[in-house]
Nucleic acid binder design. Sequence first.
DNA 1: CCTTGACTTCAAGTTCACTTGAACTTCTAG
DNA 2: CTAGAAGTTCAAGTGAACTTGAAGTCAAGG
Lengths: 148, 148
Amino acid sequence: MAELLTISAVARRSGVATSALRFYEEKGLIASVRTASGHRRYSRAVLRRVAFVVFAQRMGMSLEEIARELAKLPQNRVPERADWAQLSTSWTERINQRIAELARLRDRLAGCIGCGCLSLDACQFANPADRASRRGPGARFILGDPTG
Amino acid sequence: MAELLTISAVARRSGVATSALRFYEEKGLIASVRTASGHRRYSRAVLRRVAFVVFAQRMGMSLEEIARELAKLPQNRVPERADWAQLSTSWTERINQRIAELARLRDRLAGCIGCGCLSLDACQFANPADRASRRGPGARFILGDPTG
DNA sequence: CCTTGACTTCAAGTTCACTTGAACTTCTAG
DNA sequence: CTAGAAGTTCAAGTGAACTTGAAGTCAAGG
């Protein structure tokens, strides 16, 4: 009944390479059934999951974090409207926070860097408590040294 | 006259590890002078450059892109108020664009993923022409396949 | 039947942004 | 003067997110 997609069909429709799809499956982000001969078949629902992965990456999340988010969707039944809606709600908030952070950074950019003063020493524009950033271990904080 | 900072002082004040500072120098993002014995000494201005690097990374830029941006600052004279101001202006726009993109994504998240319909096939919420994203080669686009 | 293309697994390679370690030198405080 | 903290270079290691290659299987058209 539900028409299943081949890996290349999913790749074509999502813009994600087949190698990446296999990699995502290995990481538990998506799932497939197999044909008798061992070929992967995907339900249409996988397109939504992949879309979510792509989107969340754009938000700066690691695959591991994304996997945790996706784990909130029911594994053994078809996710319903309500499931996605809940995820989408919490994500709307997440995006709003990110937007607020960027706005804050923008304003501080003008204040700290733009002015040419030395206030960077005294300015915290990315404080340690506030790092949603997962981009490697660099870039911890930029603020005046706490000890003077 | 201008008091120079040791690498550990810069690390402490910027929150960036000494190894990262050396790495940045190797990549041409920052510069140092050397003492007679070969130790690095940094001008205070380097704090601003490092802050900029940290910030730009938070915006999702690669070090290579950041290096290109920093190259717009004068290499052989102390960057002036106006230099930073110009960079900051173009960056304000960049941030605004990113914010707009996120807002767009947020709205589409509700429309495409949130509703539970199959509209993802027909929906482009991250089109190919529009990828400021540099996070690896994955995640090209999510849109209906162009050929049908 | 045969070729061609899509698929499979598994191991190894790649890029980015650093970190770590080894081996050594230099600076600073007692 | 000496211990130890801080600095140096250079090579190699790390983790994330994939990609690529090898070697082979499966499916569809002529």
